[in-house]
């Protein structure tokens, strides 16, 4: 077969506020790649992740993973979530409230002799000092690190992340993204991440799929998906205020105030007329031509 690690083709009924929608999704993921899944709320992103993890059974379809059949509704075959060896980071972190940080991690061990990986992960996520605290005694960013470390204890081949950094502030998000990439290089797993953050998609993802109403509306590399025409779901809009605007290397470097943080935007030259300091602007993805990049500053 191909070098596809994950091969999915599923149908399901999505129950949303606007009634039942047919969900039909097919895509592949290459080994070691990072796939971002984005799109408006209710598009089926979380449902998709849970179907891959085996927590929800799709009504029909097939999921192949590294030559293993995880799901084949025709053959009435379904691998339980316990055997799929995915790491799952939930949007609400799902830390076990009655366990300490360390117990949350060691709960995932198959065999209590493998304590080494727990201390290794605690070290890498800078949680060693906090290992005897309970989850409610931690900040959001610390809880997120526990959730990430816990998902890695079993050395999963596939890490599934459901808007993992959405509740964190920008710098924390940036640090955790870097940590995630570091882990990915160390443990060599593939990742599917649900996110609304365009910066995150560009920083992390090799591939992106945009879901809307249970269907894949657009897929490709982040540049292909967000830089071409008429593909933007409504969430993908940036409002801000221009602070400074300079020309460098045939591009505009705009420092802008976006959601109370100063960020640098790299924009095509023809937008100069709109980027006058003091102006408010709204950017849609994709912008008419050229590339847009967000840089943390």
């Amino acid at each position: 077969m191909s070098d596809n690690l994950l091969d999915i083709n599923i149908r399901h009924s999505l129950h949303t506020a606007n009634g039942t929608l047919p969900m039909e999704i097919a895509f592949t993921l290459k080994e070691g790649n990072i796939l971002a899944v984005t799109g408006p709320s209710g598009a089926g992103k979380t449902t998709l992740l849970k179907q891959i993890a085996g927590l929800i059974g799709p009504e029909s379809g097939k999921i192949m993973f590294g030559g293993q059949i995880w799901l084949d509704t025709n053959a009435k075959k379904s691998f339980p979530p316990q055997l799929r060896n995915t790491g799952f980071v939930f949007q609400d972190y799902a830390l076990f409230p009655h366990f300490t940080v360390e117990e949350n991690l060691s709960f995932a061990l198959h065999n209590q002799d493998d304590k080494g990986i727990v201390s290794e992960l605690l070290e890498a996520t800078e949680l060693t000092q906090l290992s005897h605290r309970k989850p409610f005694q931690l900040s959001g960013g610390q809880q997120q690190r526990v959730a990430l470390a816990r998902a890695l204890v079993r050395k999963p081949h596939l890490l599934l992340l459901d808007e993992p950094f959405a509740a964190l502030d920008y710098s924390m998000r940036f640090n955790l993204q870097a940590l995630l990439l570091k882990f990915q290089q160390q443990f060599r797993f593939s990742i599917i991440i649900v996110t609304h953050d365009i910066g995150e998609i560009f920083r992390l993802a090799d591939q992106v799929i945009v879901l809307d109403n249970g269907k894949i509306e657009k897929e490709g590399t982040p540049a292909e998906v967000f830089v071409k025409e008429n593909t933007a779901p409504q969430d993908l809009i940036i409002h801000g205020e221009v602070l400074t605007c300079t020309q460098q290397d045939n591009q505009l470097h705009v420092n802008a105030l976006i959601e109370n943080k100063i960020k640098t935007l790299i924009l095509p030259l023809h937008m100069e007329a709109e980027m006058i300091p003091g102006n408010n602007f709204t950017l849609h993805y994709p912008i008419d031509s050229g590339q847009i990049r967000l840089i943390n500053s």
């Binding site: 993890a53 979530p81 055997l83 799929r84 799952f88 939930f90 709960f107 198959h110 816990r150 079993r154």
Partner: peptide, 15 residues
């Protein structure tokens, strides 16, 4: 209890 607690435990290999 949030469903994610059960789900997290299942994805961590627990019956």
């Amino acid at each position: 209890l949030p469903a994610s607690l059960r789900e997290a435990s299942y994805t961590l290999g627990k019956s």
